[in-house]
Amino acid sequence: MLESRLEQADLLKKVVEAISGLVNDCNFDCNDSGIALQAMDNSHVALVSMMLKAEAFSPYRCDRNIALGINLSSLTKVLRAAQSSDILTLKAEDAPDVVNLVFESSEKDRISEYDLKLMDIDQEHLGIPETEYAASISMPSNEFQRICKDLMNISESVSIECTKEGVKFAAAGDIGTGSVTLKQHSNVDKPEQSVEIDLSEPVALSFSLKYLVNFTKATSLASKVKLSLSNEVPLLVEYELSGGNSSYLRFYLAPKIGD
């Protein structure tokens, strides 16, 4: 059986909110190392991969592999009943028909309990190759969101060019062109404001802004976002979850190729 207790319901609320624009139904795969999720959007352009490590919960118990097939809009409806600061406990039997969600207010004076019906989802998993990316950029997550939203007003595509000079996001559309260039800089007082660029060779790729803007729904989960790029492979956009236990929310986006 599964029994996992999250100190802050907010974490799951935000994860579900961040991925529900891309994915309708997906399996939450539970095993002794934690709860994982992998799903593509309907048009197979983007892939979401989430890992909530057992260490993100206290306590966490899962004796055997359990797949929780969940409709995300149904889960959203149930999670609306949870206050952000509630303690959230997820429970399921082996081979379950329902997942049980319990929300406890931090003052412990209210306990809400919901059973969400599960679906049988026949989901194929993709093998994501270990990649040494040519460029990785760590930047404030709200800055990345801002850039994507601003450039979406110009075009549906953005080119991301990373050189030793910095990283340039550029868009060209009917009304004109726009670009934002970021250079590496460290902010000692506010490390979350730093931009770090790790480059082994220059990269230039184009991506759909509609998807990138969708990914940035995860912005409130982490102060930093990491972009990893290599020529001719999908972009990786990564948000760290729940500080320091290597839980993550990753989005992969297939590039636009040719002209």
């Binding site: 352009v45 184009s206 590039p255």
Partner: peptide, 14 residues
């Protein structure tokens, strides 16, 4: 611009 590629062209089914 360019043509949108598919994630399936990069990541194989397990």
């Amino acid at each position: 611009g360019g043509k949108q590629s598919s994630i399936l062209g990069f990541f194989g089914k397990k």
